[in-house]
Nucleic acid binder design. Structure first.
Length: 425
RNA sequence: GGAGAGGUGGCCGAGUGGUCGAAGGCGCAGCACUGGAAAUGCUGUAUAGGGGCAACUCUAUCGAGGGUUCGAAUCCCUCCCUCUCCGCCA
C-alpha cells in the first residue's frame, strides 16, 4: 500500500513512478479526497475537544454543588448535544472518504525501486548473470516424457480425483518430491533460516496484507462457507505471522524458510504448459522470507537471491538471473530477480524462483513495524522461492536423463532420495 | 455439535457512569548507590492520525460495530474471537 501522506504531498511522484510500470494514472482526484479527509479530521477533532471540555464542565459543576436540573447545567447539556450532532455529521463524511481512500490505495501496485530497469514487458528484462553449463543435445526428452516413462506421476487419474492441472506423484516421483523438500529445508536452515510450517488456509486479511487482495481474488481458491482461502504461496501466511506487530530492531532481520503446498487458479492460462509439472493448480514450494530493517533491504535482496541460487548450485542445475523490468515486476514488488533454470529437454530457461524486495509495501498493509528509540518505522519485507519443487523436479529429470533411460540425480540429493538415480521400473 | 467462562497496556492484573490512556505489580530503559555487580531507590516506558522548527499539543483507541448519556473501560444491543468441560475426530 502506498503512503497516504505521499498522495497528499507528492502525487506527481507516484504517477511518474507508476508510469514506469506502464500505468497511466491520474491522482488529482485521490489527492483531493486525501486532503478533504485530513481537513475533516482537523475540524472533527477540534469539535470533539470542545465537546470533551463541555462534558468535563458538567461534571465539575455538579460536583461543585450546582443543581443538575438547573439552567446552568441544562445549557451545557444543550451545547454538548449540539456538538455531538455536528461531530456525527463530520464523522460520517470522514468515514466515507477514508474508506474510499483506503480502497483505492489498496488497489495500487508498489512503486518500482530506483534501480529497477525500465521496460514494458518481459522482453525488456535484463539478464545479469549465468551459472553452469547448459546441457544441449539432440533427442533429449522433456520431463513429462521421462516422468511418464518412469511412472512418476498420474496425470489422467488425477483428473478423476480433482481436475486438470493436478497431478498425483507416484513411487519414485513421490519420493523425489519429498527428498527435494527436505533437502532445501535443510540447506536453508543450515544458513540460519528458521523453519516454518504455516496453515495453508488463510483469511482475507492475510491475503490483503501481502497484496493478493483486493485485486487478485480470481487467482485464489476460496472456501465457500468461511472467510478462508487456499494460500497461493507461503509468503501470505508468513507475512501475517507478524501482522500488527512491532519487531524489536535488534531482532532484525527475521529470516524464515517455509515449506507449503501452493494453490493457484491459473485463470487465463488455458492451453499453456498443459503437460507435466510446470503449471499446476497445486504445487509444493519452499519459500524464503525476510523481515528486514528498512535501511538494509538492498543487501537483504542480494542475500535472499544468493540463498535461492545456492539451491540450484548445490543441485548442479544451470541457471540464469534476470533483473525484471518495471513492466514485469509483480504487484507488491519494488524489484525482482527471477532465477531461470535450464531445462535440457525443452532446451530453454524456465522460471524457478522469483526473489523480490517489497520495501514497506506489505509492511504498511500488514502494519509490521520496528522501533528505533522513540520512533516506529515500517520494516521491509522480502520473499524468494527457494525453490519451486515441481519445477525443480522437472529440471532434475531433464538435466539428469541418461541414454539407458535412467535419471542420474545430483550428488547432494542422493542421501535424501536413498539412491543416486531413478531407474526404469 | 452441546454447556459454561472470558476478552483491559509488552505481560499479569485492578477498575460498574465523570478530571481514566487507565491503579498496582512484572518486564524493559536511564540515573543514583557500588571497586564491579546483586539488592535497593528515583525517573521514564502504548499505538495511530492531525497541528507545530521544536518543546509540545489535540483527537482516537480498554475484542469489533452500533445505542443510551453533557460524559462510557464501566449501562444496553449485535457480532467476532479465545478458553474450559462433554461429545466427535487425525
Amino acid at each position: 500500500m502506498l503512503d497516504q501522506r505521499l498522495v497528499r504531498d507528492n502525487p506527481d511522484f507516484i504517477a511518474q513512478q507508476l508510469g514506469r510500470r506502464g500505468l497511466d494514472v491520474d491522482l488529482t482526484g485521490l489527492q483531493l479526497i486525501a486532503n478533504q479527509q485530513r481537513d475533516l479530521e482537523e475540524r472533527r477533532s477540534s469539535l470533539q475537544a470542545e465537546g470533551n471540555t463541555v462534558g468535563k464542565q458538567v461534571g465539575l459543576k455538579i460536583k461543585g454543588g450546582a443543581d443538575p436540573k438547573g439552567s446552568e447545567v441544562a445549557e451545557l447539556r444543550h451545547r454538548g448535544n449540539t456538538i455531538k450532532q455536528q461531530v456525527a455529521v463530520l464523522e460520517e463524511e470522514e468515514k466515507q472518504l477514508s474508506s474510499k481512500l483506503r480502497e483505492q490505495l489498496l488497489s495500487f501496485p508498489n512503486l518500482p525501486s530506483v534501480d529497477c530497469p525500465e521496460g514494458r514487458s518481459e522482453a525488456d528484462n535484463k539478464e545479469v548473470r549465468r551459472w553452469g553449463e547448459p546441457r544441449k543435445a539432440e533427442g533429449l526428452e522433456e520431463h513429462w516424457q521421462i516422468a511418464d516413462r518412469l511412472g512418476l506421476l498420474e496425470t489422467e487419474r488425477s483428473v478423476r480425483i480433482a481436475q486438470s492441472r493436478f497431478v498425483t506423484l507416484m513411487g519414485q516421483g513421490a519420493r523425489l518430491e519429498r527428498a527435494l523438500i527436505n533437502f532445501m529445508l535443510d540447506l536453508h536452515c543450515s544458513k540460519g533460516y528458521k523453519e516454518v510450517l504455516p496453515p495453508v488456509l488463510v483469511n482475507s486479511a492475510s491475503l490483503q496484507g501481502s497484496g493478493q487482495l483486493p485485486k487478485f481474488a480470481e487467482e485464489s481458491f476460496r472456501c465457500a462457507d468461511d472467510d478462508l482461502w487456499l494460500t497461493p504461496t507461503a509468503e501470505v501466511p508468513v507475512t501475517s505471522l507478524h501482522r500488527d506487530e512491532i519487531i524489536p530492531a535488534d531482532l532484525l532481520p527475521v529470516r524464515y524458510v517455509a515449506y507449503s503446498p501452493c494453490f493457484r487458479r491459473e485463470a487465463g492460462s488455458y492451453g499453456r504448459d498443459t503437460r507435466g509439472l510446470i503449471r499446476l493448480h497445486q504445487f509444493n514450494k519452499v519459500e524464503l522470507y525476510w523481515f528486514s530493517h528498512p535501511d538494509q533491504s538492498d543487501q537483504a535482496h542480494a542475500q535472499i537471491t544468493a540463498d535461492a541460487e545456492a539451491v540450484l548450485q548445490a543441485l548442479d542445475l544451470p541457471y540464469r538471473v534476470l533483473d525484471l523490468c518495471t513492466g514485469d515486476i509483480g504487484f507488491s514488488a519494488a524489484r525482482t530477480y527471477d532465477l531461470e533454470v535450464w531445462l535440457a529437454g525443452a532446451g530453454a530457461y524456465r522460471e524457478i524462483s522469483s526473489c523480490s524486495v517489497c520495501g514497506d509495501f506489505q509492511a504498511r498493509r500488514s502494519s509490521i513495524r520496528t522501533k528505533e528509540g522513540k520512533a516506529t518505522r515500517l520494516v521491509h519485507t522480502l520473499n524468494g522461492s527457494g525453490l519451486a519443487i515441481g519445477r525443480t523436479m522437472a529440471a532434475v529429470l531433464e538435466n539428469g536423463q541418461q541414454a539407458d533411460g535412467s535419471v542420474l540425480l545430483p550428488e547432494a540429493l542422493a542421501p535424501y532420495f536413498g539412491a543416486d538415480r531413478l531407474q526404469p521400473e
